[in-house]
């Protein structure tokens, strides 16, 4: 195997604070002690691969996949699209992207969600796809509604889509959320606010993208995702300590 080099260490400053009293659940679910840092090893540099054979034809079409194509979901039709790249700007091809979201009324199809916005019988709320050779992915879905959640007395989540990405190594594994341009609730959300640097939070806000919007059919939002890269220099140690 050729050595692609170690993973570039994670810059924790761009990520949310694990402990954030504004997001109450994080208080008892965040480590007190420092993380143990070291250079990546094969356990982090390798990772699972998923083939197109695993996926069904409608897996990236949330408007139709719950009913297996029988009837479309209710809501504002949107295309969510973008690229998966690494920190060196290289596309990440053939990687699994999974999303899940509330329906247009802000209700999840999950046994634990009891919000009184109704379930849409034609909407399941998840999708998955594999990036193409240039790292592109697309989902057709409906724009999720905002919803209230138990935190402070009157907290609401902005419209958002949850995204899970693998990359090619287990150390690149990432879950994040995509927000929508112009949503006034972003500025009030304690979960969005776990990211302390507003310019970093802005990187999770997808712009409206007319270049991919299809007339009389759907609007488009663009969301690029950057995963950790690998360090390659001419001076990597071949032997420990040499």
């Amino acid at each position: 195997m050729t050595d692609l080099g170690p993973l570039i260490p994670r810059n924790r400053a761009i990520h949310p604070d694990p402990y954030d009293p504004g997001y109450k659940t994080s208080v008892a679910r965040s480590p007190n002690l420092p993380l143990l840092s070291m250079e990546s090893t094969p356990s982090e540099e390798t990772g699972p691969a998923f083939g197109h054979g695993t996926l069904g034809a409608l897996d990236n079409n949330l408007i139709l996949n719950w009913t297996k194509g029988a009837a479309p979901a209710v809501g504002e039709r949107i295309l969510m699209h973008g690229r998966v790249l690494d920190e060196m700007g290289r596309p990440v091809p053939n990687t699994l992207v999974e999303i899940w979201q509330a329906n247009a009324g802000g209700r999840y199809r999950h046994k634990k969600d009891t919000y009184f916005a109704p379930l849409d019988p034609n909407f399941g709320g998840c999708g998955r796809t594999i990036t193409d050779e240039n790292g592109y992915y697309e989902f057709l879905t409906v724009r999720p509604g905002a919803y209230p959640w138990p935190n402070r007395a009157n907290d609401w989540r902005p419209m958002h889509i949850h995204i899970s990405v693998y990359g090619h190594s287990f150390g690149q594994r990432l879950i994040t959320q995509m927000y929508f341009e112009g949503d006034p609730l972003i500025a009030h959300c304690p979960i969005a606010a776990t990211i302390k640097d507003r310019s970093q939070l802005d990187r999770l806000v997808a712009p409206l993208d007319f270049s991919k919007s299809r007339p009389l059919d759907f609007l488009a939002y663009k969301f690029d995702i950057v995963l950790r890269g690998r360090r390659q220099t001419m001076f990597e140690n071949k032997l420990e300590g040499m």
Binding site: P16, M88, Y108, R203
Partner: peptide, 26 residues
């Protein structure tokens, strides 16, 4: 000319519908 990793956000209470649909009742 390097990019920065996309910031993480919590997987939230409904992560199972996305990643383990059978567990979530779907």
């Amino acid at each position: 000319d390097v990019l920065q990793e996309t910031p993480s956000q919590t997987a939230g209470p409904y992560v199972h519908i996305g990643l383990m649909p059978t567990y979530a009742g779907n």
